[in-house]
Design a protein around this nucleic acid. Sequence first.
DNA 1: GCAATATTGCAAGTTTGTTTCGTGAGATCC
DNA 2: GGATCTCACGAAACAAACTTGCAATATTGC
Lengths: 161, 161
Amino acid sequence: MARASSSTALDAFDHAILRILQKDNTTPQRTIGEAVNLSAPAVQRRIKRLEETGVIEANVAVVNPAKVGQPLTIFVEVEVISETAELIDLAKTEFSAAPEIQQCYYVTGEADFMLVIVVPTMTAYEALARRLFFGNNNVKKFRTFVAMDRVKVGLAVPCEI
Amino acid sequence: MARASSSTALDAFDHAILRILQKDNTTPQRTIGEAVNLSAPAVQRRIKRLEETGVIEANVAVVNPAKVGQPLTIFVEVEVISETAELIDLAKTEFSAAPEIQQCYYVTGEADFMLVIVVPTMTAYEALARRLFFGNNNVKKFRTFVAMDRVKVGLAVPCEI
DNA sequence: GCAATATTGCAAGTTTGTTTCGTGAGATCC
DNA sequence: GGATCTCACGAAACAAACTTGCAATATTGC
């Protein structure tokens, strides 16, 4: 069996490998190979290709925020006044620069940005809000949601086939 | 220099190691050791401890959803009718079971759940919404935000000290 | 059906992770 | 104050995993 296409298309082997790596990227290539019926070097080459083509964006350790002194996870919906490209890009840059902001998405709907923020205390969040939201003339309003329970956390992606 | 406490407290070495692993957990322990001024075995023991104590929850490959045929990221704010423990737990279970739901948080504020969903098409999202939201008698309302830009995505946690 | 290309498996070589052992620093108890 | 205990460290040996070259095989395009 060979790859579906020579370019960047993913075949069933790739999906199977990704499924494993998304759960545990310390799984030995030999073990992966046994699971997907491929030799270890073949698995290695496919992983390398997946990394080079950007399918695998990073290999990271997932840390429990509460256990490193950052027990508060907060969602923020931000609505801006003007949606000119310059102002949106400015906001993106500012939000990206803040280490407390774990995730930042530019969205359509009743808000313009969705933020996921991790902070040690409510005081820290208030300081951040004062700086990023009250201190930004283009922020019309923002709504805060404090997480009480991390029911499910993942960047893993459901893989079909 | 010694560890701050014998139990589960993290010292500066641990934080330095975590900072590296959060960016790239394939970094060789020798390299980490050089960066933090520790031997490779010392690094290895600390990583093992961090994993055993749950500070490191997982080691995963981060996949680009768009490149595996899941180009749509959607935020959903869900408001429920009754917040009894049973009904909340039921909702948590249902949301956790859906592979499309990447992240699920139970929050305080004007909504009760914040969801981050990854799907291939809008049609797939509509089907999911019909099943999970319209098909759940306890869902009062939900608001959908479609992500146009993944400005910043991470589960990495800002480490102090 | 044939040539060109791509992918595989095997085996050797290299890097990395892991274990063992002895040492030294700090804490505790007498 | 001194002995002892615990813990973490580093150096070296060991084991495991990753990586690469090569020949063979499968697939794609013509």
